[in-house]
Amino acid sequence: MELLIQNIVTGLTIGMIYALIALGFALIWKSSGVANLALGQLVLISSWFTYGMLVQLKMPFLIGMLLTIAFAIILGWLIERLALRPLIGQPILSLIAVTLGLAYFLEGLTAFIWPQGQGYLPKAFSQDSIQIGAAMVQQELLWGAVISLLLFILLSLFFKYHKMGIAMRATADDQLAIQACAVPVNRIFSMSWIFACIVAATGGILISSIAAINYGLVETGFKSFSVVILGGMESFLGCIVAGPIIGICETFGGSLFGSSVKELIPFLIIIIVIMFKPFGLFGEERIERI
């Protein structure tokens, strides 16, 4: 029983961080219909940037964080402006492929500037575990979950009430119609990339302050695709529901069948979901016409 609760709580908190990264994916997909496969690499490069600011240049924590956010904003803007905008109207294959190229480029860039392959951020949160009912939880995991939840609520509110958010949803619905209403679609695309990069950077800082900065962050990005697929790509709610589900499945699989199975579970979930319920829990089913 104790093990059960322990697994559930650990899975929930880890899953919330997956959900956060998946949120960055859903943002871009929702507004511009581009599938961003460079998710893990965005997380990786922003974590390394934080490392560069906090450890190599020895900045104070707060300023380092602000600089990382600024870096994420610039990165998102540059990516949209230089790589994605020239490809508007191209087939989906090109759009997927360009994010793959981007993934390669960003990975190369991190290896170029930080070739050491492994780095540690200063711990932002207390290392003690706290007792929740019968389960012990690491405090930093809990903080990660809380921050993810906060960001999720903020983003949902933004999409629901803010003018820009409404315009973004409208763009996702019908690009031509929204252009006819004189909404600058280009700006909306670049806003969504900027948001996605900020979310990825936040997720990156959270994960890498808990564990280390290394290539594993890219694999975390891949695992987040299972969240996206299970939750349905159009849905923020899907992300925040599916994230903990994946996290719980992972910790249970890990404790039942050994830790090597743990890495496999997100990918098995992807295959199962795509075979039986391809549009996920909350995704919209697309009906195609000729």
Binding site: A97, Y104, F105, L106, G108, L109
Partner: peptide
């Protein structure tokens, strides 16, 4: 290597 390949690709 990675960087150059990504760049050519894009």
């Amino acid at each position: 290597n990675l960087m150059l390949f990504g760049l050519v690709f894009i």
